[in-house]
Design a protein around this nucleic acid. Sequence first.
DNA 1: ACGAGCGCCTGTCGGC
DNA 2: TGCCGACAGGCGCTCG
Length: 273
Amino acid sequence: MPELPEVECIAAALRQGKEGQPPLTGKAILGARLLWPRTLQEPSPAEFAARIAGQVIRQIGRRGKYLIFTLDEVTLLIHLRMSGDLWVEAVDAPVAVHHRLLLDLEGGLRLAFNDTRKFGRAWLVDDPQSVLGGLGREPLEDDLTPQELAAMLRARRRQLKPLLLDQSFLAGLGNIYTDEALYRARLHPLIQSDELSYFQAAALHRAIREVLLEGIRRNGASIDWVYRGGEFQNYFQVYRRDGKPCRTCGASIQRITLGQRGTHFCPVCQPKG
DNA sequence: ACGAGCGCCTGTCGGC
DNA sequence: TGCCGACAGGCGCTCG
């Protein structure tokens, strides 16, 4: 589920707190309970429990779609994949069905990794780069210029949509924000990356930034039971709008399957040529 | 280097 | 009502 904007909003809420929920920075982790073993990618459950106990959460950040908890001596990384979420609750609250990993915190709190589909993963590592090292550039960083993105696109020969979903190219875009960005840039998802003009690459650069910033501003996108409190789903232009009229030209939004992912676009506003 | 297909999982929805 | 397939915010792995 969560793409860059949702992960950013989750990180911010844990870092700063929100209504009825205190910030987690500065809190000590007292212990861990692993309920679904495969959720923990690294290290072994025993080593995880031993190493995380007593660590204080110093910083909470994000890189791509990963949440980063900087502790005293180790780093906890969490990837929510399709259906993961983090809940802050009372340490004695009943354990919800889809909780996979519990971290008991000081102050009577518990951080729960809830993940219906069990695709989510957690790592406890000495060096976060061992997990994050393969990620591409952060799309919202100011030093990623339109010129640079244009050069990156030219250096590859791939269909735009799969390339934008490739986390080693840009870190953080997923299926929703990619479709929405391509729509805003008026680019067909199947265009070859090395065939874009500089003007088109610059339009894509701007579209990606705008769509991610709007997602963050609207507190992310909530669909079905996954991720709550977001509003961006009410502003989708193409995602899951197949058969509905394009808000720009009225043409019927199309859906194709690309790399096993639903892909939505306006055949008039996003021509191939 | 790139694309396609599958596996990992649970849940929802529409059609028959 | 029940069953069955399609589909769902991701990604790692194979195989051409």
